[in-house]
Design a protein around this nucleic acid. Sequence first.
DNA 1: CTGTTAGCGCGTTCAC
DNA 2: GTGAACGCGCTAACAG
Lengths: 336, 336
Amino acid sequence: MNRIGTRTTGRPTLSEVARLSGVSPITASRALRGVSTVAPELVRKVVEAANQLGYVANPAARALASAQSQSIVVLIPSLSNQLFIDTLEAIHAVMHPRGLEVLIGNFHYDVDEEEKLIRNYLAYQPRGILLTGFDRTDASRRLLAASQVPCVHMMELADTGPCVGFSQEHAGVVAAHNLLGRGRRRLAYVAAQMDPRVMQRAEGFRRALREAGVYDPDLEIMTPQPSSIGLGSDLFRALMHAHPDVDGIFFCNDDLGHGAIYEAQRQGLKVPEQVAMVGFNDLPASAHTVPRLTSIRTPRAAIGRAAAQMLLERLDGKTSGVQSRDLGFELVVRES
Amino acid sequence: MNRIGTRTTGRPTLSEVARLSGVSPITASRALRGVSTVAPELVRKVVEAANQLGYVANPAARALASAQSQSIVVLIPSLSNQLFIDTLEAIHAVMHPRGLEVLIGNFHYDVDEEEKLIRNYLAYQPRGILLTGFDRTDASRRLLAASQVPCVHMMELADTGPCVGFSQEHAGVVAAHNLLGRGRRRLAYVAAQMDPRVMQRAEGFRRALREAGVYDPDLEIMTPQPSSIGLGSDLFRALMHAHPDVDGIFFCNDDLGHGAIYEAQRQGLKVPEQVAMVGFNDLPASAHTVPRLTSIRTPRAAIGRAAAQMLLERLDGKTSGVQSRDLGFELVVRES
DNA sequence: CTGTTAGCGCGTTCAC
DNA sequence: GTGAACGCGCTAACAG
């Protein structure tokens, strides 16, 4: 059988496109990439030939020759959280029209896994990297710095690198003020996962309670377990059992809040009359639970979009240095 | 400044590893890949040199030289559905230890977008492709066939290609039987998105109702809108308004079911006394809503795992031809 | 079991 | 504005 050699792809190459359009390969290359000054007439011919052959450039050859791929790496701590899916989609929507491929790395809230991902993905010579937060290993930081690949950090704000996010700590303050404003004094913080952002929100919440003179460390329930609805039910039950006088709770995310709402309903415990609740992220379900969950809406899609754009600007050399973009958040007051 | 040339990566190359370990580049290559027969002593030396230099192979060069990447492409219709996230994670868990990168393509339930993704990703010379279902454009099919890249289809069963999934139609039958078994006769099917699998479940549900002599086409509510909790509330409200005598509903997925449960609660409509409900997928929340939602649990992680393994076997040439693997599903009876 | 040779397909560099 | 030559880093093919 006339099998193609194992070293060749069998797909049309740039040379074939060039031959068909009567120009040199390099002109075809330039025409297809839209760079430099190629006569419009030639461009037309080349593009036509490419379409006719169904030519698609070989990314490997391209990356090898230019020492640069057409990929952007995005490193996120979890895929199971709708939060990051929304961010991812927004990033993709910005990058795709620019011909940039988005490589997704999920490090499962594990900085060592993130380090491995960085080492691995750097080998792909990505054009840029989008990172979640600022908490990572020193080795990761060194790898990133040595690579010279432009980075933008998402979700948190800091002056140590270009970033797009909002003040997690302030979100904690706002949640506290909402609860305090409703006359609640026995306020609890219920958290899982305990990633850096969860801790920052805890810090803000704590500070506000302290200033109001109602802070009680016994009412901070934190577990490193992954967050889930079931866990929210469990933590709520345990909390109310140990401290029946709690009259307001800030959950580090909506999943926990939903679990608590279900559990409260099962126990016949009135929300918000007996216990008020504030969630975080404002997932779609929060607008529908009974009662509807008051929550802090995070601009996750906007963060993805803005971070992607900031990265593009850096690639184009339009900006440089540390740039911090605060997209804020919004307390969505509902029934809980 | 002594900047490295723009054509070079600045990272250690195979030649440097070879030089440091006193062998030829090709021997270093073989040692690192663990192929062929290289003397154990040499392997040790090469690996040591590679570690010392922090060498990571350049995937682009590798792909170019071997006409084959270390990537597996997975094409899914949505990232917003927890279903596919679970599948994705399982696939990754199988592929990663084998040194295979998973490239995720989200085609947003759009066969034309899927076709573009296929055209694009094929240029990356993936080792294999994991597809969702069998419904795609003819061009997609041709592209795939011409590429010779091994494929495995997920979620549905058919005899037209290797696949791992379960009978969507039978799931519809089982849902119907559960409702019929509880004495319900006015049964509705409420669906959104209307992807092929949703339609297959509809077909099974319909068939079972027909056999029981209770099929009423007016009680099929289908909309192409994307599925969501809010939509579930809306559709449920509209349905019960138009047909107050409906006493059982099968939802094409749990999101719609959850929305209906919330809405029923708001309307003071007793579930399941007045209307029984069966969902599909068994998302985590279904075990916690009030009342807890009876649902069909789909083996989404198992499907990802098995599909990945089937693909690996094909890559290793262990199997070939059409192979269909039915992983079944499970009706989880709860309170609704 | 190891090395030599050659080339994967493209873009950079420099010449025209 | 266009082209020739070369090389990116690696591995297939074939010797030995």
